[in-house]
Design a protein around this nucleic acid. Structure first.
Lengths: 131, 131
DNA sequence: CTTTGGCGTTTACATTTGTCAACTTAAAAA
DNA sequence: TTTTTAAGTTGACAAATGTAAACGCCAAAG
């Protein structure tokens, strides 16, 4: 919904036109959305006259980092690895990204535990294989 | 919200007790939630008498795989790698997971492009470095 | 200076989600 | 068999979200 900010910064018109190439939303709808995003401080505005330029308060990667991290806190520790593996599998990565990952993994390998343990339930009760 | 299903399967009582160890929700609230999850087909019920056992229609990892994949479709292609890198960085992985990732990466490296291109906007307009 | 077109703001309404209390009913206890 | 109790179902209400029309206002065009 606010992936629109991939533009870095834009006027409402640019946003509207951009979105309407893909989505069948009315101008009104998009304006409302813009307004709400501003109210939520996800966008800032640089006023010029009485119309302004919107820009994201937080860069896309950062926002995504947070979202993904948050998502992972809701996932059993034991399963995080597998999810990333599945994700990697279906992505097209650049040589550079692959290299960086390899570096990190190599480093992690030196201290990684044989297994991570489940931390799903508040009660100590552990999930053996099923979870 | 339905991370509760880490249990694999459970009675409403187990769910309620489990949740209440961490969350300060009333029994009522949790019952409503259970009901809504059933209505949404996220849980199935095996009736025994008139009380039943709930179980997830889809396993946790699968659900998470989908969620993450979905999330990534909303992210610029160029940035996916970096987000994973940041994620890897803050996770504790098991030796086995690391090994699997290394295998995948090594394989991907043989065919990976030098760079992936931006696919943010519907218009051909590309984002050079900013996006 | 007046008209008009573009842009932001307000208002509106349906749906979903967060939170609960009350009601109903079948099973367990008395 | 009557009374509890526990579990599921309904109804409620506020807040957030999806979608959009109408309104007000500044600046550009006449």
């Amino acid at each position: 919904m606010r992936i629109i900010w991939t533009l870095g910064e834009a006027s409402s018109r640019e946003v509207i036109d951009s979105i309407q190439l893909k989505r069948d939303w009315t101008e009104s709808t998009i304006k409302t959305l813009l307004g709400r995003l501003v109210k939520k401080n996800m966008l800032t505005t640089n006023k010029t006259g009485h119309r302004f330029v919107y820009q994201p308060t937080v860069p896309e990667t950062e926002a995504m980092d947070e979202t993904v991290a948050e998502l992972f806190t809701h996932l059993c520790n034991m399963k995080k690895g597998q999810v990333i593996i599945n994700l990697l599998d279906q992505l097209t990565l650049s040589q550079k990204d692959i290299q960086q990952m390899q570096t990190i993994l190599a480093e992690k390998a030196t201290t990684a535990p044989a297994t991570v343990s489940c931390d799903c339930l508040a009660s100590g009760r552990n999930c053996d294989q099923n979870c």
